[in-house]
Amino acid sequence: MSNIDQAKEAVRDQVWRLLEHEGAVPEGSYGKIPGFNGAEATAKRLAELDVWNQARTVKANPDWAQLPVRIRALKDGKLLYMAVPRMASLQPFFLLDPATLELPAEQAAEKEGAAQVARRVSVEDMRPIDVVICGSVAVNRSGARIGKGAGYSDLEVALLIEAGFVTDETVIVAPVHQLQVVEDDIPETEHDFSVDLIVTPDEVIQCPNRRRPRGLVWSDLTTEKIEAIPALKARFL
C-alpha cells in the first residue's frame, strides 16, 4: 500500500468511526459508502438548486446512500443512468427513463428494481451527462473526495470523460452527511476526480479546485481489475 493509499485509508477510518459514534449512520456502515441520516433532506436541498432544475440527464452510483437522489431524479422527469453494481457487464450502466417506467420511482431507483426494468447500455450508447452524483466516504471543501476504496466511481467518470459525455459543463455532486465533510487535506492521484458541489442536510458547498482526469489511467489499473470489469477488458484488448 502506497503512502497515498495509507493516508486515504486513515481518513476513511476516522470518518466511518465518527459517523458510527455519533449515530449518523445505521450499524454496519463501516467499510461502505454510508447511507446517512438526513439523506432525504439532502436530496431535497439538491433539488432546490438551479443546476439540478436545469439538468436533463443524471448519472448516479447504485449505493443506498444515493437512493433518495435517484428517486428525486426520476420524479423530476430526468433521464437517470445508474451504474451496474461493480460494473459487471459490457453494458455497465442501467438506463432509467421516467417516461417509460413500469415501477414506481421508489422501486425503480433501487438496485433490484433497476435490474428488473432498466435497459443496460454501453458507454457509447449514452447521452451527455449534466449532473454526476458520486458516493463518497469523505470530502473536503476544496472538492477532494474519497470513496470506499474500490475505485468504481473513478472508473465510471473516466469512461464517460473518454466518451465525451462528462465534460467541463458537467457538475459533479457529493451528497453527504455534514460529518463526512473533513477539514484535512485529502491526497489525490492522477485518476482521482474532485467534486464541484457538496450537498449536506445543512448546507451547499461550492468547491473551487476542480480536478478531473483526461480518461482512464491504465498504469493505475491492476490486471485483476481489468479482468473483472468487462468494459475495461474490451478496451484493453
Rank of each mutant, 00 (worst) to 15 (best):
D220Y: 15
G147S: 01
R70W: 01
G151Q: 02
F93T: 10
P85S: 07
G77K: 10
E162R: 11
Q206W: 15
D13N: 15
L101A: 02
V132R: 07
L101W: 01
V139A: 04
K111G: 12
V171I: 07
A99Y: 15
V51P: 02
V181L: 00
D76Y: 08
Y81C: 01
R45T: 14
V157G: 02
V217S: 09
G77A: 03
A47N: 08
A10K: 15
R235P: 15
V15E: 00
A41H: 14
C134Q: 11
N53Q: 13
D13H: 15
D97H: 08
R127V: 15
T100Y: 05
E203Q: 12
I33L: 09
E224H: 12
L197F: 10
E183S: 12
L160H: 11
K32M: 09
T57R: 11
G23Y: 00
K32L: 10
R86Y: 13
D220S: 13
N53Y: 05
K8Y: 12
E124D: 13
Q66A: 06
R141D: 06
Q178Y: 13
P213G: 06
R210C: 02
Q66E: 12
L80V: 03
L103P: 03
D76H: 12
V121M: 07
L216S: 05
T42L: 00
R127A: 15
L221Y: 10
L232H: 03
W16L: 00
